[in-house]
Design a protein around this nucleic acid. Structure first.
Lengths: 218, 218
DNA sequence: CTGTTTTCTTTTACAGTGTAAAAGAGTCGC
DNA sequence: GCGACTCTTTTACACTGTAAAAGAAAACAG
């Protein structure tokens, strides 16, 4: 529970520091994007914010809580995607959400592992899910089918994006080339796993699942 | 590069300490299984091994390298699964590997996130991939198809297992129940996402992909 | 204007982290 | 005995998250 600044009457008074929930979590995301999750620390964050590390703890109970807020920040864009979809086409909505989710991984490769491991526990995520399932309901998809396909599709998206990042991050490793020489078949197959094919492969797997959903609903 | 103990002539001489690559990584896995990844440290590992933390660094260049070895340890079981499959049935092999992979997540829930984020860069993993793709080749699956389906299926398995763990780990959170009350549709759909359904949902999504593979090969 | 309370921030401190560098021991071949 | 090599501990450093207390500044009450 964030012991947020309970406003009595006042709102803004102390401008010089400029600290706030939003400013802190935005700076946190920026820092993670730049240096990576492993190098992120409250002291470094304080340095870019122009304050001591402990000042952050008045806004966020712990580093964990701050990271949860960053997650919410990343997920915010997704919620809007559902609303932008056709009113009664759950398949189209799922497709749009899937692509938007993968886009987050591309836009914030260093921060994405946060999402991948601890999504969907915050209030913001629940609001998004509610809209998505509401749309499913309107489209005549029963709860069991919605549950199954959401789990299957979201697992796939999550795993795919994580996979993509892992290989992208490790592309510079020298051992990879050496290993590929010793394993001929891996080398041959890997030729089809270059980044340029990723868009197509992702869509291929996604459509495969959405086709099955369409068949189920028909 | 591990600056491994280059054996000149001797093999075992100093038994009292009992340190070795295998002993260390086995103890590391045990410790991670017990306390979780976040609480794992070289000093604690030294404590259970009966040595100072720095002794570990003669066997492993860094904590990172040690964790890579733990990953290899976890993946070792998988390699055997491929060999146990029918000689010319790639689909069956993929199915067995998928279930074995998910089983790792169940057997080592606390260590699994390691796998999920940084698999398939070690020598052991490459050997496994070579066998899997060799089997695909024998079964008449072309490289492009093998690449596509391996990527799709492995992404799905990875994401699914990660998802399962995340919800299992968070089941005790009090905020979850409160949130579900505010979001009726989430609550209704979540009823179909209880752990008891997970086996079936996992197989459902997996077979959906394997069916598509069968269609492609026919 | 004065004194008190509430809202933020810094200071200080502590127990823990990964690991570089050096020093210490035990064992080998000579 | 004497290096040389193999393994382990010691010491040290820079860094981490964050509890506890002190400090400062603004808001409010009189």
């Amino acid at each position: 529970m964030t012991k947020a600044p309970r406003k009595k009457v006042t709102q803004k008074r102390r401008e010089p520091t400029g600290l706030s929930h939003d400013a802190i979590r935005a700076a946190a995301l920026e820092l993670i994007d730049k240096d990576g999750l492993g190098a992120f620390s409250t002291r470094k964050l304080g340095r870019v914010l122009g304050c001591e590390a402990m000042a952050i703890y008045w806004y966020y109970e712990s580093k964990e809580a701050l990271l949860d807020a960053v997650i919410d920040n990343l997920m915010e864009g997704i919620a809007g995607v559902v609303n932008g979809s056709a009113r009664h086409d759950w398949i189209a909505a799922l497709r749009r959400v899937a692509h938007a989710y993968r886009q987050i991984a591309h836009d914030h490769p260093k921060a994405f592992p946060l999402l991948a491991t601890r999504r969907f526990a915050s209030a913001g995520s629940f609001a998004f899910l509610e809209q998505l399932f509401e749309l499913a309901h309107r489209a005549g998809v029963d709860d069991r089918t919605a549950a199954r396909f959401f789990r299957v599709v979201s697992s796939y998206c999550n795993g795919f994006a994580l996979n993509e990042l892992a290989t992208a991050q490790r592309s510079g490793e020298p051992s990879g080339a050496a290993l590929r020489k010793r394993f001929a078949r891996v080398a041959a197959v890997s030729a089809w796993l270059e980044p340029k094919y990723m868009d197509e492969i992702f869509s291929f797997g996604l459509e495969l699942q959405l086709d099955a959903l369409a068949r189920t609903m028909r």
